[in-house]
Design a protein around this nucleic acid. Sequence first.
DNA 1: CCGGAACGCC
Length: 655
Amino acid sequence: MKLLLLLLSRLVAGTKNRGAKSTGFQKSEDALCFALEMHLRGVVFDAVTYTTVLAFCLDHEGFLFGLQLHSLIVKFGLDNEVFVGNALITMYSRWWHLGEARRVFDEMQNKDLVSWNAMLSGYTQEGNYGLEAIRAFIEMVRQGIRLDHVSFTSAISACGHEGNLGVGKQIHGLSLKMGYGNHVSVANVLMSTYSKCDVASDAKLVFDRMHDRNVISWTTMISLSEEDAVSLFCQMRLDGVYPNEVTFIGLLHAISIKKFVKEGRTIHGFCIKTNFVSELNVCNSLVTMYAKFESMQESKKVFEELNYKEIISWNALISGYAQNGLPQVAFHTFFLAIKESKPNQYTFGSVLSAIGAAEDISLKHGQRCHSHIIKYGLDTDPIVCAALLDMYAKRGSISESQRVFDETSERREIAWTAIISAYARHGDYESVMIWFKKMENEGIRPDSITFLSILTGCGRKGMVDMGRQLFDSMVKDYQIEASPEHYSCMVDMLGRAGRLEEAEELVSQIPGGPVLSVLQSLLGACRIHGNVEMGERVANVLLEMEPKESGSYVLMSNLYAEKGDWEKVAKIRKGMREKGVKKEVGFSWVDVDIDGLHGFSSGDQSHPKSKEIFRMAECLGSEMKYLREKKREGQINGNVILYRTEILENLNMGD
DNA sequence: CCGGAACGCC
C-alpha cells in the first residue's frame, strides 16, 4: 500500500516525461489495479495517464483491462483526445480486433498522422488485412493526408505480406519522390519486401545504396542471403554495428541450411563469449543448427543446458530426431515435451513426420497422436491437417488420409497439395487427376508441389498433351517457376511417349541450363527408344558437366548394349577406368525382426546364409515370371497372394 | 503519452 501511494503521488503530481516504464509497473495487471485504485480515491485521470496505462494492455492478458479502460475513457469524455484514440487503435489491432480499432478511428474527430499510421500498421500485421492496408494507404494519398517514413514503412510491409510487387514498387517510387526512400526503416522494409517477392537482387541493390545501416538492416540482409550470411556478419562487425538476438537467429539459420559446420561452431563460441547463449531463442537456433549438422549429441547438449525450455526448444529437438532417422527418439521426446509444455502445430508437424517415416512405430501411435491433436484443439490447423494426412498416406492408410481431408474444415492450398501428393505417392494417378479437377473447381490455386504430382500423373497415364498444357499453364498463368524436378518430370513424360525431339527442345529452353538429373532423364528416354544419335549428344554434355558421375556412363553403355554395339560399350568401360570413375554400389536394406538390419549389394556373397538367399531369390524370380504369364493369360484376376500360397504349396516350399 | 523495419520450431 505504501508503494501504491508513492506511485499514486508520482502519477498525480503530473510530472512530465513519465514514460510507461518510469511508473514502475512491470505488468499490465499492476498498472490496471493501480489505475482502479486511483479512480476509487476520486482521482480523475488525464488523457496522458490513460495513454500510459493503455500501453500496458498490449502484452500478456491485458486486453480485458483495456476494455475496462476504454469504458472509463468514454465515461469521462476523454475519447476525443487524439493520443487516447491512437492508443486505443493500437490496442485493439494488437489484439486482432481490427473492426473495433476501425470504429474508434472512424469516430475520432481529430485524427492526426499517428492515427492513420496506427490504423495502417494494424492492417499491416500478418493476417488477411494486407489489402485493407494498401487501401488505407491509397486513401491517405487521395485525401492528401501528410505521409511520413512510418506510413511508407507500413504500406510497403503490407505489400510484402501480400506478395504484391507491383504496388510495392509504386509506393517505393513515391517514397523516393517524397524523400523518404533512403530512410533506414523504409529501406529495411523494402529489402524484406523485395526478398519476399522473389527479387533478391533488388533487395541487395537497396542494401548497397543505403548509407546508414542499423542492426536491422544488417540482420535483414544476413537472413535473406544464406550463402553470404557469414561474411555479411563479419562486415557488420567491421562496420561497428553490434548484433542482437535476432541477428543470431537469422545467421544460425543460414549456417544450418548451408551446413557451414566450421562457421557454425565459431559463431557458437562467439555466442558463449558474448553471453548470447543466455538468450533462449539463440539456443533454440543452436539446437536446430546441430541437428542440421547431423550431430544430435551436440544438439541435445545445448538443449539440456537450457534452464528454461519453451515449446520451440522441444520442437527443434523433436524435428532434429525426426530428420536424422531417429523417429523412435523423436516420438519419445514428444511425450516428454507435452508433459512440460503446451504443444503447438509445429510440435505435431514434427512428430507426425517422424511417425510417417518410421516403419517400426505402430500406426496406433499415430492414432494416439491424432487424439492429442484433437485434445489440444489443433485439428483445424492447416499445417497439422496436412501433416496428419501425409502421415497416414506414408503409412499406407490412404483412406484415413482421405478422411482427414474430408474433415478439414478450412481447406487451404496445403491440404489439397497434401491429398494430391498422397495419391501420387500411392501411384493412384486416377485419383490425382480427380482431386486436381476438384481443386480447380473450388478455385484453389495449385502450387509447385501440386503441379509435380499432377505432371507425374499425366506422365504415368500417358496423357502427354494434357501434361504439356498444364506445364505451360503453370509457368505462364500461375507464374510458378519450373524447378529441376518439374523439368525432369516433363522430359520423362515426353521421353516415355517417344517425343524425344520435343523433350530435347524443352531441355534447351531451361533458364540457366539443365541440371544433371534432367539430362539423365533425357538420356534414359534415348535408351528406351534406342536413339543413339541424341543419346551421344546428351551424354557429351553430361560428361562435361560431371565427368565423375557414374550414372551417365552406365546409361550410355546400356544404350550401346541394347543396340548391340559392344565395341562402344567396351570403350565406355575403358573410359571410366581411365578417369577413375567407380560405379557407386547400391545397397538394399532388409529389416528382420529377430536379428536386425541387413545390407545387400549386387553380387554380394558375404552373408553367412547367402547360398540360401540366392536360392530363394531364384525361386521368387521364376515364380514372378510364372505369375506374370498367368496374369497375361487372364488366369489370375484379383488375389495374387492367395494364388501365391497355392503355388508355394505346389512347389513344396511352404516356408 | 500514441504509429514503423529484421528472426527461429512446419
